[in-house]
Design a protein around this nucleic acid. Structure first.
Length: 428
DNA sequence: TCTGGGGTCCTAGGACCC
DNA sequence: TCTGGGGTCCTAGGACCC
């Protein structure tokens, strides 16, 4: 087995870059994309970062700063981002099948089997091609482990002299030391909010320090991940490329409500809607669930914070929307408290099994024939919605109320996925 | 007034088994 | 009198990722 050479292709400020594609006048201006309910900044242009707007900044706290500096805000438009992401993955897949689509804006490639003389030049060419064909700026990092490729991409993004790429593979040990010296420990893949201060207390301030940490100590402080991290920083790959996406272990859908509510029918409509979305996802992934749970909470920023959970176990695994809706609504009715100001609700499906193995439950309550009917019903609904648009056919329970729906005042059109929302071109 | 959403993996501890 | 130890499964909680 050949030693891997990883490239990480990482989109710069991805959501903002997607919005700018159709609003070119926003180049060089501070732009942010906000989370659900237009709550927090989840993507920021370089100009917005330079204004000191941190990741996750609550919009209401920064309103003054936004206004004073002409910051342009968008509600997140995941349909648009997903479509552009798919186009980028198409380009990358044509380069090599040894690709791992790690997230909506990051992919790893293993280049070790490709005939490339100059990896840095290769990365620069790819970067230019993506910019030309899709219009999204990317950073590319190259390294002998995924962790080093990540750090390379980070350097490519931040160092103005890098041309957007950084090769940490074809360099000397001393050069790598120097590069790792400039990476604060918090920016290493796998070091989060909690571990960073612990490491700093140990005198481990940057990636070069962590690369020197004794294996046993790394394990004590961070568990097996820590041991791996040290090896990866030294160029030994421990985290392999995951080509085919593994089947999901759970599926969850939830939302913070547009406004808090104590109305049972509003919460029921939300839960029904989440159950329907989860069930659809479940069928898409060709799985069945054996257990569904609901989770509700009040506003966690208030002193009266409360939370509730409840779950339903199914006699036989299912992916039927109707069955899931009645299960979650039934679970809610048992814990409903009319004095509570519900702020957020979610539905999670657990214990997923492939839909090819349908097992009769022990009590024989669900026969294969019944199961077959439900499958046919769901398939028919999915087919109609695919042909005529999402939610053309849906359960009445989803429509009992709409008061829970989040606010998205600043959403851009679905330029690339909806005929009604194509960009318009004005004749001169 | 206004603070996101959807996941994964690891670990520790208890129950239970032989 | 002596009072084991290893394995497995499950769950809850905590850490991380984008």
């Amino acid at each position: 087995m050949k030693k891997p050479i990883f490239a990480l292709i990482d989109c710069n400020n991805f959501f903002v870059s997607c919005e700018r594609l159709f609003r070119p006048e926003l180049a060089n201006r501070p732009v942010v994309v906000l989370s659900s309910n237009d709550g927090c900044a989840v993507s920021r242009s370089n100009e917005a970062k330079a204004l000191g707007i941190p990741m996750g900044a609550p919009a209401f706290k920064y309103r003054q700063l936004f206004e004073a500096n002409g910051v342009v805000s968008f509600s997140a438009n995941f349909e648009l981002y997903g479509d552009l992401s798919k186009r980028l993955v198409q380009i990358l897949t044509a380069i090599t099948p040894r690709i791992e689509v790690y997230s909506v804006d990051e992919s790893f490639l293993d280049l070790s089997l490709l005939a490339i003389d100059d990896h840095e030049q290769w990365a620069k060419d790819l970067r230019a091609r993506v910019l030309r064909d899709i219009g999204i700026p990317v950073s590319i990092g190259i390294g002998g482990s995924k962790t080093l490729a990540k750090i390379g991409a980070d350097i490519g993004k931040k160092d103005p002299n890098s041309g957007g790429v950084c090769d940490l593979y074809h360099i000397s040990l001393a050069e790598r030391q120097t590069a790792l010296n400039g990476i604060p420990v918090r920016n290493i893949w796998g070091v989060g909010r909690r571990l960073a201060p612990q490491l700093q207390a140990e005198g481990v301030a940057n990636a070069a320090d962590l690369a020197q940490l004794r294996s046993a100590r790394a394990r004590q402080l961070m568990g097996v991940h820590g041991e791996q991290m040290v090896l990866e920083l030294n160029g030994t790959s421990c985290i392999p490329l995951e080509r085919q996406h593994k089947p999901q272990k759970m599926i969850s859908r939830g939302r913070t409500f547009g406004e808090d509510t104590n109305q049972a029918h509003v919460v029921e409509a939300a839960l029904a809607s989440f159950a329907a979305q989860s069930a659809f996802r479940l069928r898409q992934s060709q799985q069945l669930t054996r257990r569904a749970s609901i989770f509700l909470n009040t506003d966690r920023h208030k002193a009266s914070y409360r939370q509730w959970g409840s779950e339903v176990v199914f006699g036989a695994p299912t992916a039927d929307t109707g069955q899931l809706i009645s299960a979650v609504v039934g679970a809610f009715s048992k814990i409903y408290d009319k004095s509570a100001a519900y702020h957020r609700a979610s539905v999670t499906l657990h214990d997923l099994v492939p839909d090819s193995v349908f097992q009769v439950d022990l009590l024989g309550q669900a026969s294969p024939a019944q199961h077959g009917l439900k499958v046919a019903r769901s398939r028919a609904v999915d087919a109609l919605n695919k042909r005529f648009g999402k939610r053309t056919v849906r359960y009445a329970a989803e429509d009992l109320a709409s008061a829970w729906e989040p606010r998205r005042k600043l959403k851009s059109p679905r330029y690339t996925t909806s005929w009604d929302e194509l960009p318009k071109i004005k004749p001169l």
